[in-house]
Lab assay of single mutants.
Amino acid sequence: TTVHLNGVTYTFPNPEEARKFVEKLAKTLNLKVEVHNGTYHIE
């Protein structure tokens, strides 16, 4: 599972880890999250 954040790409072997990371980040920084083909894009 891949996460794109400010031009940096993070790869998680575990989709659940990626989801938790994204949710925590989005909540902390009040960001918008979009998912395209299983890839998270955070703005």
Rank of each mutant, 00 (worst) to 15 (best):
E16F: 09
N37E: 08
T1I: 08
E43W: 15
P15E: 11
N30Y: 06
T9K: 13
T9Y: 11
Y40Q: 03
H36A: 06
V35L: 13
Y10H: 06
K27W: 10
I42L: 15
T2C: 13
T28D: 14
T11Q: 12
T1Y: 06
K24Q: 14
K20N: 08
E17I: 11
R19V: 07
N30D: 09
V33C: 10
A26M: 14
N6A: 09
P15Q: 11
T1F: 06
A18H: 01
G7Y: 05
V22I: 13
N37M: 05
A26F: 06
A26H: 08
E17P: 01
V3T: 01
V3N: 00
R19M: 10
L29Q: 12
T1C: 08
V22R: 01
G7K: 07
H41G: 02
T39I: 15
V3M: 03
F12P: 00
T2M: 14
P15T: 09
K27G: 14
F21D: 00
V35T: 04
H4I: 15
E43V: 15
Y40E: 03
L5Q: 02
A18Y: 01
E34V: 14
L29F: 12
F12T: 00
V35S: 03
F12E: 00
T11L: 12
T2A: 12
Y40H: 03
E43T: 15
H4F: 14
I42S: 02
F21S: 00
H36D: 05
E17K: 11
K27H: 13
K32H: 08
L29T: 09
F12V: 00
H41S: 04
N37V: 02
H4Y: 14
H36M: 10
N6Y: 10
T11W: 12
Y10M: 11
Y10G: 00
A18D: 00
T28P: 04
G7L: 04
T28E: 15
T28V: 13
V3F: 03
H41R: 04
T11K: 12
T9V: 15
N37P: 02
E23L: 06
F12G: 00
E34R: 08
V35E: 06
E23T: 05
A18F: 04
I42Q: 01
T9I: 15
V22W: 02
K27P: 06
N30W: 05
K27M: 15
A18M: 04
P13F: 08
G38L: 03
P13R: 11
E23K: 05
T28G: 08
P13N: 12
L5G: 01
N14L: 04
E16H: 09
A26D: 09
E23Y: 06
E16R: 07
K27Q: 15
H36K: 13
T9W: 08
P15W: 09
R19W: 13
P15D: 13
E16M: 09
L25S: 01
L5Y: 15
N14C: 12
V33E: 01
T11Y: 12
K32P: 02
V33K: 00
V8R: 12
T9R: 13
T11C: 14
L5C: 14
E34C: 11
K20D: 10
L31P: 01
L5A: 05
P13E: 11
P13A: 11
K32A: 04
A26Q: 14
I42T: 03
V3I: 05
Y40I: 13
A18P: 00
K27L: 15
G7H: 08
E43C: 13
V22L: 04
L31V: 13
T28R: 13
L5N: 02
T1G: 10
L25E: 03
T2Y: 13
V33M: 04
T1D: 06
V3W: 01
V8G: 04
T28M: 10
H4S: 08
Y40T: 04
H41E: 05
L29W: 09
I42C: 04
P13I: 10
E23N: 05
H4N: 11
H41L: 09
N37T: 02
V22Y: 02
N14H: 07
V8D: 06
I42F: 08
L5H: 08
K27S: 14
E43L: 14
L25Y: 04
G38D: 05
P15F: 11
E23H: 05
T11F: 12
V35N: 05
G38M: 03
K32Y: 05
Y10E: 01
E23V: 07
K32G: 02
N30L: 07
G38K: 02
F21I: 01
A18V: 06
N6P: 06
V22H: 01
N6F: 15
L31D: 01
K27F: 13
A18S: 03
E43Y: 15
G7E: 05
R19N: 05
E16S: 09
Y10P: 00
I42W: 02
A18L: 04
L29G: 14
H36E: 05
E17M: 13
G38C: 11
A26P: 03
N37F: 04
L31M: 08
V33W: 13
I42V: 11
E23R: 04
Y10K: 03
P15S: 11
V33G: 01
Y10F: 12
E43M: 14
H41A: 03
F12D: 00
N37C: 11
T9M: 13
R19Y: 09
G38V: 02
P15G: 10
E23F: 05
L25R: 01
G38Q: 04
T2S: 11
N30P: 07
L25Q: 02
E34Q: 09
L31N: 01
K32N: 05
L5S: 03
T39M: 12
L25F: 04
K32I: 10
T9F: 10
Y10V: 07
G38T: 02
H36S: 06
N30G: 10
V33H: 01
G38A: 03
I42N: 02
G38N: 06
K20I: 10
L5F: 15
T28K: 12
T2P: 07
K24S: 13
L31H: 03
V3A: 03
I42H: 02
E23I: 07
F12Y: 03
R19G: 05
L31Q: 03
E23Q: 06
T28C: 12
V33T: 02
F12A: 00
K24V: 13
L25M: 05
L5E: 02
P13H: 09
E17Y: 08
